[in-house]
Every structure is written in C-alpha cells, then in structure tokens.
Design a binder for these strands. Structure first.
Lengths: 173, 173
DNA sequence: CGCGTTAGTTCATCCATTGAACTAATAAGG
DNA sequence: CCTTATTAGTTCAATGGATGAACTAACGCG
C-alpha cells in the first residue's frame, strides 16, 4: 500500500483562507461533480444541460428562451443550441407565442415529460450520493444557503448588465 | 420601464427540484461568479487560477504539483501550465526535491509572497460582496457545508480513480 | 411609417480542460 | 546490479463549453 504519502496528496494540504473563498470552492465542487456526472450522463445519453432544461420547462410551460437563459445562467446563444437539439429529438416544442410572435413558448412534448419522469429518479439518486455526509436537516440548510446565493448573484448580474425590467425583488421565502 | 414582464425573466420562474440539485446550483453559481470575477481578475492582471495557486503554495511550502492538482481539482497537465507561468513571472520557485528528484518542491518567491499579500485583501473584498446577504454566523455555516462537500467529493474521486494511497480519512472537524 | 428595442439565430472564436504519449526518477525484487 | 513497474512532471493536439457580434424578425411607440 504505497510508501511515504508525506503530504497525503489531498487530505494533508492546508487550505487556509481558501476554505472561505467562493470562487475556489464553486470551481472545485463543479469540477468534482462534472467528473462524476460524465459517466452518468453518458449512460443516459443526455446532452450537457438537457436534464435541467427539461426540468425547468416542465415546471414553467410557455416560458421563453430568454427566461430560460436567465434562470440557468446561460447566454441565449447557448440556449438556442440546447433547445433546438431537444426539439429535434422530440422532447420539447417551440411554438411562437400568439400574443407576441417573437417569443418561443417552450413546453415539453409527451415524450419529453416521459423522459424527464424517467430520468428524475436517477438524478435524485445521484444527488443523494453527493449528499451522503449530510442529514436531512443539513441538506435543507445547505440548499437554503445555495439558493440565497443564487438569487443574490442573479440580482447583481441583473444590475451589472443594466437589465431594466424585472429587477424587482425575488421573494425570499 | 419595459412592458409585460409576464414571466419576470428571472424572479418568477419556478425552480422546483432544481432548488436541491447540486449540478445545477454549482454550475449556476460558478457562472455568476466567473462573470463577476472576469473584470476583477483583468484589473489585477491575474491569470485564471493564479491567486488560488499562490495561496495554497504559500500555506504549504514544498508541496508537489500533484498535491496541488488534487487540492485544486485540476489535472496535472493543467497545473504544469499554471505553475510554469507563475515561475516565469517570478512569483514562485520550483526546486527538485533533494530526497526525491521527481518532485518539484513548490514555494513562493519573495515577489510571490508580496503579490499574494497585496491581492488577498482585494479577494476578501470581492468575496464579501458575494456574501452580502449572509450574517457572519451564516457565512461560517455556509462554508462549513461547502467544505464538507468538497472533502466528500474529494474522497469519492480518490476511490473512483483507484488512487491507492492516502484514501485514509480526511479529518472531520 | 420609421425608430428603437427585444427575442431568437447563427457562426466564428476563444479558452479552459482533457487525454495520451513521452521523459525522468524512484522503488522493488530476483 | 539489472529489470520491471510505478510515479512526477511535461508536452501537445484535440475537445467542448461558453462567448460576442452581427444578423433577422417582430413588436411598440410615437
């Protein structure tokens, strides 16, 4: 079983201020999760971001691509690709909104709903693995914090990009 | 101030299960933070990841590039580039370890220490902006959760990649 | 009508990250 | 010693996610 492990390649390294550094932590967590999800997604034959898109649209039928982009923190150009791909595979429908034909009103097809239903279990399982060390109460707290962060950073981005509308306030629960 | 905002481009979208979905949240948070940090780093003339590298090496002088990679969740090939760049700019030194000449023992140069000291304030300020909505106690809790996640996912990755040594246990504080 | 704005598309580009093949140094074992 | 396996680090070509800018189409407001 190997020799020295002087610095214990991972556990023994002192993080110091990085323990409270969001850019570092978000990047590291993201890297880990991507690595683990790679196989998982491959097994599902799922594109990058596909699951998330199906999920949001399922919950917000009729939403626009811009709203989707804002919600998922993608650029609209990236959304176009994602959404066209899902449409081509028959999982969602893009109808021009009757009231304003610039909008694409997005909604899941029957196949899309079915696919999401089938996949969502697996996602929950995968998620549970990530969360093994946390009790139910802790998970709730963790996600509460992450969602507050998500909202706060979203607010900031709205302001930075000078997006006139809808700065409003996101309701804090 | 714009018209309909029917779906309130951002605030009004229902997230549902995504509120507790780590892949989604980490990606979204990462995207926000990257966007905000872009200007910030440009102003410092800092490369991607430079600050984090300086920080860890400062705290763990003599560490190897492999340890650095494991800590920051980079591949070693990426670390090589980062570290060579910082060496070229005079911020750190790579001496072959005397005891095992395969290792590069990394440590900050005087200029590197100075640079890090100068920068770390700004990072803290930047971080504080991200954390505005949180009280001191909440920040501590948030980071406690994130670090536990970081360690847990790190453990998992060690196992997945069959890394023999050092699976051990990272001390839970 | 004509001007400004917004939703979405397209595409070329960038940059971070990866994988694989390579060198050099060490450890282990006969 | 000499051979073989392993580990640290390097190099580079390739991938892929994300971006920016230029474009079309539709709307709103005078």
């Amino acid at each position: 079983m190997a020799g020295e492990v002087q610095n214990a390649s991972f556990a023994g390294v002192e993080l110091g201020p990085l323990r409270e550094n969001l850019p570092f932590l978000t990047r590291a967590l993201r890297a880990y999760i991507r690595a683990e999800n790679a196989d998982f997604y491959a097994a599902l034959d799922a594109e990058q971001g596909e699951i998330v898109v199906l999920s949001v649209i399922g919950l917000n039928p009729g939403m626009s691509q811009n709203d989707l982009a804002a919600t998922l923190v993608f650029k609209k150009s990236a959304i176009t690709k994602l959404v066209k791909d899902l449409e081509a595979r028959g999982y969602l429908e893009r109808a021009k909104s009757a009231s304003d034909r610039r909008f694409n009103a997005l909604q899941l097809s029957a196949a899309g709903q079915e696919r999401y239903a089938r996949i969502s279990d697996l996602i929950a399982q995968q998620n549970a693995v990530f969360l093994e060390p946390f009790s139910t109460a802790e998970r709730a707290e963790l996600f509460n914090y992450l969602n507050r962060l998500y909202r706060h950073l979203g607010q900031r981005q709205l302001q930075r990009t000078g997006n006139s509308s809808a700065i409003a306030e996101s309701r804090d629960d």
